[in-house]
Structure formats: C-alpha cells, structure tokens
Amino acid sequence: MAKKLFFMLLVIGLIAGGAVVSMATGDKGVNFDGALAEITLNGTLVPGVSVEDVQYIEDDIQEEEYIYKKMIEEYDSLFFDKNIQTDKVYIKDIVIKKSDSKKDVIQDYDLLVTLDDSVNLEYGDFIIVMAFVEKDGGYELLGTPIKVFIKYPKPYKFELPFVGEEQPNRIRIIAFPKSSYDQFTLEDNFQVEHKEVIIREPKQSFSIRSSLINTRESFNFVKSWEII
C-alpha cells in the first residue's frame, strides 16, 4: 500500500513539475520560427519582447519626445539663430543622401554622421543629433533625433518637405552630449551645421511603350466592367 501511495505521489509530483515548465511561457504564443513571442498591443508577434517591455518602450519614446520638445522651446534662440557659429565638433563627415529603401519616394532622405575621434563619452552618455528644416519662417524638427555613441551610427531618416530647384531644403543639424542638455553654452557643448538639399522634380518623360500599356490596361478595365 505504501508503495502504491509513493508511486501515485511520484506521478503527481512529476505532472506538477512538468506543468510548471510547460506553463512557464505564460500567455506567449509560438511564432512560425518556433521562437517564443508575445502579442503586442497592435496584435503582432515580436520575438523576445513582452507586453510590459512594449509599454516601457512606448513610455520611453513619449518621454524622449517630450524632452526634445521642451529643449527646443527652451533653447530656440540658440538652436535657430542664423548667425551662430560653433567650434565644437562631435560629429563629422555629415552626409545627406536619398534613402535607398524607398526609391520611388523622392523626399525620403538619410542623414549620416560619423562620431568624431576626439569625442570621449562617459558610460551611458551619448551625442544627440537633431535635424531641422527651415519652413514658414521657422524651423521644424525632422524625423526622430538619433543617439550617437558608436563611430558609425545608423542613418537618421526623415522626409524633406520641399521639391523643386526653387525650393531648397535648408537643414540645420544640431549635436550635443546628452549629459549637458541642461547647461548649454556655445563654446563648450554645442555643434551646429548647415546643409542644403535640392530635390529635383522627376521628369515626366513620354514613353510610347508605357502609354500603350496604359491604354491596354484601361481597355481591359472597361472590358472587365462589360461597358463595351
């Protein structure tokens, strides 16, 4: 009898142990690659990111946006002074080039910067790079500012507002260390650069081939509706 009881307890113990392991993933699903995944707020599966993480990231982004907005308000006279000149160099080799990812969208651009060799960042510190475009007599922030803490950071992506040779996009790039955002001085911790980008209007060239295709497509469309 004792043996039977021991055996039953053992089986129950094993089931309980197995259940703990199998339930350990909680509400997570398994994606097509077999990796554990969470259902995000918009219903998509992101491997390795929990709902709490998503919430935290979104809060973080909102907080950052708020800080950037506040900074721009606070330092607008410094940021947007057209006569300002700075000597400090945090970023170099500033390149603004058309984004490769969407070839058809002519206004999508990438800003690329290289961290200057002289920059020595403390642990946790980074350089904030913000780009603005001159618009309606003022400046408008382009895209989301980037944090630079490695030599070759990812591109800063944004959409430029003006197309045409008569409407150049006048861009002002500002770089400063995060650690000194509440104590800006022109001499010590602030870099301003100016760039101008002209987006040429795409040529509307006439092509016999494409016009024939369009005619044929229109014909097929009309035919599909049994109009003729």
């Binding site: 170099k92 080799d93 390149v95 080039k97 490769d100 690329l112 290289t114 030599k151 070759y152 591109p155």
Partner: peptide, 12 residues
C-alpha cells in the same frame, strides 16, 4: 542584390 560602398555613408 545591390551593395553600397561604405565610404559613401561614412567618408572617413
């Protein structure tokens, strides 16, 4: 698949 010259992104 196209590749980019890295120097066009980072001239240094």
């Amino acid at each position: 698949f196209p590749m980019n010259r890295l120097s066009s992104y980072y001239p240094s």
